[in-house]
Design a protein around this nucleic acid. Structure first.
Lengths: 120, 120
DNA sequence: TTTAGTGTTCTATATCTATAGAACAATATG
DNA sequence: CATATTGTTCTATAGATATAGAACACTAAA
């Protein structure tokens, strides 16, 4: 599920990488104990320099989400399971917005703004 | 509705400013013809340097969303109205996630990932 | 033991982002 | 006309981000 980052979004590459990996863990696509692709494979997958990969992995390690073993690889440590109902609700909203021709950027901006402006 | 940006999010300040203004226009809180705060007021509101403000306004101008008149100010040009139903749907999702103690960052990451992974 | 495949560390360089500070240009108002 | 308020332009500097390239360290397997 991991894919090329968007180099023109303005969001730092290492952050986009962190976000992708975190999301995969949240969605249950990466489970505890599972090994990540090697750093040199990640270099190809995300299409960034190895140092950028390392910066992202370092942060995820500091958060305790993953761990590394020299000579072996990186592994998911902590599982972050979320409610299936929540995933369903998000899918439903995404579906509605896509059918109304919204683009992802606009959607994210709106969600953020509603989040910060509404007191619920 | 415009507020301080988050200097520690890693997202460039000028992008956060663009996002906020765009969202206000989308939500109808800034309507066509309406004047924005002065650049020096925006400096205070967002808590960033005037050059960062200008960079953001420049981009919004290039997109045709706002226009400037020297000696007078910046004005909203294009209106981007969206379906009230869409806003309601977003509010509903935000409400549900907040009640489940989700944080904004996790929410945005999930929405993005679901958007990119689901073919709908 | 040797080799291939892992992660790890380091230096150097270029570009982007953000700030500070100063000055200039156009407009509206007294 | 003079002044205050607005946008505009410019230079210099610091820090963050990203890349390239090289070398080193640990592990597993031939």
């Amino acid at each position: 599920m991991l894919r090329k980052i968007d180099k023109h979004s303005g969001v730092p590459a290492y952050l986009q990488i962190i976000n992708q990996i975190k999301a995969e863990i949240l969605l249950g696509n990466l489970k505890a104990g599972q090994q990540l692709p090697t750093v040199r494979e990640l270099e190809t997958i995300f299409d960034v320099n190895i140092n950028t990969i390392l910066k992202a992995l370092e942060r995820l390690k500091a958060e305790g989400l993953i761990a590394s073993e020299q000579g072996i690889g990186y592994f998911v440590v902590k599982e972050l399971s979320i409610d299936a109902e929540v995933v369903a609700a998000i899918k439903q909203l995404v579906s509605k917005l896509k059918s109304k021709q919204f683009d992802l950027y606009t959607t994210l901006v709106l969600v953020e703004e509603v989040w910060k402006n509404e007191r619920i």
